[in-house]
């Protein structure tokens, strides 16, 4: 049991943060406990500190509006925060969709779908195209384009303010990830993840690899939802620099050889870091 907790420590912490944040929002909006109000699009911490989804702000800006100071400050705070903890830390530590797609992945494993599934081709760069497209369409249609269709917003807004038919969109993502493409939504399409991946290219806290201790068991690559980021495993020591790494910590947990750990990126000599 203790071993199991050790081997899932980051997963458990992530679930606690994801659920904790949702619980705080629900408490803030429905029960008058005003630590966190609003939702993931924009919120107010302790009634004073504004937070805002920088990608939503960017879309609204593309749609042709300069917003109030509150959201701009909120968006900057969020950008700085994720520049520190890792861009896509949002995806694995905050986004409620992560629980849905992880559930799809788990079901996939239980049903042995990997071994017998049809191959559907979908590139990992699609998210950046969708990201660009949402900004262009925001400009063309005069409304934040992704925010109008985002299943993530439907989910978190639904949990906090009432779901309606939103569960259908969430079910679509689940089925897509389960039957069409592994990590299809989070790892291929989601432009919000794409946005945070761009931030992640410069972010501070990274997973670091120590090649000397690696025994090439490849458990990390097996568990990673973004395998392409682990290209240095067993080849060289250093930080996982790709922004697509979500800092979920699953690779660190499964590693039996102490070859992976969270660390601070060395900005100055990252090229020569060996």
């Amino acid at each position: 049991m203790k071993y199991w907790i050790l081997k899932h420590r980051f997963l458990l912490m992530r679930r606690m943060t994801q659920l904790g944040i949702l619980a705080l929002y629900i408490a803030g909006n429905s029960y008058g406990f005003h630590l966190l109000m609003g939702n993931l699009s924009s919120s107010l911490v302790m009634k004073h500190i504004p937070l805002a989804d920088p990608f939503a702000v960017l879309q609204i800006f593309a749609a042709g509006t300069i917003l109030g100071l509150d959201v701009l400050i909120g968006a900057i705070i969020v950008v700085i925060f994720y520049l520190i903890v890792g861009g896509r830390a949002f995806c694995s530590w905050v986004c409620p969709m992560n629980m849905v797609t992880d559930m799809a992945n788990w079901t996939r494993k239980v049903l042995y779908l990997e071994k017998i599934e049809r191959k559907v081709w979908l590139g990992r760069n699609v998210r950046y195209w969708v990201l660009g497209l949402s900004l262009i369409l925001s400009a063309l249609s005069g409304v934040a384009a992704f925010e109008m269709v985002s299943p993530i917003s439907m989910l978190h807004r639904g949990i906090i303010f009432g779901m309606g038919m939103g569960f259908a969109a969430v079910l679509c993502i689940f089925l897509f990830d389960l039957f069409a493409v592994k990590n299809g939504w989070c790892g291929h399409i989601c432009p919000l993840g794409g946005f945070y991946a761009l931030l992640g290219r410069m972010s501070m806290i990274r997973v670091k690899h120590n090649q000397a201790s690696c025994t090439l068991c490849m458990k990390c690559k097996d568990i990673c939802p973004e395998k392409q980021v682990l290209s240095i495993i067993g080849k060289e020591s250093g930080a996982i620099v790709s922004g697509e790494c979500t800092n979920c910590g699953r690779c660190i947990e499964v590693c039996e050889d102490d070859a992976l750990a969270f660390g601070v990126r060395n900005y100055i000599s990252s090229a020569s870091e060996k």
Binding site: G38, S41, I60, A63, G64, A144, S153
Partner: peptide
């Protein structure tokens, strides 16, 4: 265009 849908 301006509403960020935060529900505040």
């Amino acid at each position: 265009r301006m509403c960020i849908k935060c529900g505040q």
